[in-house]
């Protein structure tokens, strides 16, 4: 069964030919539209709401640098860049010089009952200081207990005690990084009896107390809604849309068990039609937000990711600043 976790990213890089990091000529970058603006812009500007990005995968490093790709930003898993140096940092440095970046942590265990790991936080801070990403995000999840790490995003019981702990962890992280972070809604396979705060309320209250933003993963919404037999639309309607600083779109798989199906958040395929429809409706209602095509398993060729990014861009580009105009309601998907 597949799932949304991470594997060490290095194997694919071995298939690449040796030698120096290839650099596209300025001319080829200009013709591809990547060098249209001041080179400094990648380092200095915040992401525009209509930005669309993709997961950065080692198997695409060389092609991105040699051929360029039409994308507004890349997102990496922080923990894959916790090494002291070497290939990953060489490529990320070269790519960061010309693209905006989002650093997405999966292992800080914000939802863990115990204290945050100070070494992890220090490494995250070093990474953020080094690359000055436009966005930094983490999950409403835990992954560590008693010093053992599970390499998975585990569910948090949504209680007032948990809310206090999560808020303290978010504040500690924001203090350490000197900036606001985004927290992502989880994909759920079960719910806890003890949970007495709806997830959307929990996230909204956390954002209100800590000043953090939210990362709305619409695939997680679809996965959780199916698995917990709730309505994805109701969840989105209750979501604190003003706090959303980024949207994730990803694919999931279906796991059949005794004639029943669980949706598994595996990031191993294109976003489903349902995810796209909900995304379109959300953007229409809430306005554009930086949007990531997230793909971590069975990573396809760069062109496939670029195509999904183009689809997101089309939706982001649709006028959305006047949500009540009758003309705009025509853009709302029929279903």
């Amino acid at each position: 069964m597949s799932r949304m976790t991470h594997s060490p990213e290095m194997y694919s890089a071995r298939t690449q030919a040796g030698g120096r990091i290839p650099l596209a000529t300025d001319a080829s970058l200009r013709s591809s539209g990547l060098l249209a603006s001041d080179p400094e812009s990648a380092a200095t500007l915040a992401l525009k709401p209509r930005s669309a990005g993709m997961s950065l995968k080692p198997q695409h490093y060389r092609q991105i640098l040699s051929d360029g790709v039409d994308v507004d930003f890349f997102e990496v898993h922080a923990e894959n860049y916790f090494g002291a140096g070497g290939t990953p940092h060489r490529y990320l440095t070269a790519i960061r010089e010309r693209h905006a970046l989002s650093i997405h942590g999966i292992g800080l265990s914000i939802g863990g009952a115990g204290p945050l790991n100070p070494d992890h936080l220090a490494q995250l801070r070093m990474l953020v200081d080094r690359y000055e990403p436009q966005l930094v995000s983490e999950h409403l999840a835990w992954c560590e207990s008693g010093g053992a790490y599970f390499n998975d995003l585990l569910p948090v019981a949504l209680t007032s005690e948990a809310l206090d702990i999560v808020c303290q962890h978010v504040e500690q992280t924001q203090d350490a990084l000197g900036r606001a972070i985004l927290i992502e809604n989880p994909s759920n396979y079960l719910a806890f009896e003890q949970s007495d705060i709806p997830e959307t309320e929990f996230l909204a209250e956390m954002a209100r107390r800590t000043g953090c933003g939210l990362l709305l993963d619409i695939n997680n919404v679809v996965v959780s809604a199916h698995n917990l037999q709730r309505s994805a639309q109701d969840y989105l309607d209750a979501f604190s849309m003003d706090a959303v600083g980024e949207i994730h779109l990803a694919g999931h798989s279906n796991d059949e068990r005794n004639g029943l199906t669980l949706k598994i958040d595996d990031h191993g395929s294109a976003p489903s039609a349902e995810v796209w429809d909900l995304y379109r409706a959300f953007v229409h209602k809430a306005g554009a937000r930086p949007t990531l095509i997230e793909w971590d398993q069975d990573v396809p060729p760069l062109e496939v990711l670029a195509q999904e990014v183009a689809t997101a861009r089309t939706i982001l580009g649709a006028p959305s600043s006047q949500p009540n105009s009758p003309r705009e309601t025509n853009h709302v998907p029929a279903r």
């Binding site: 923990e79 070494d119 390499n151």
Partner: peptide
């Protein structure tokens, strides 16, 4: 037996 840190490096 399980990782002692989140990063698998």
């Amino acid at each position: 037996a399980l990782p002692r840190q989140a990063s698998l490096i």
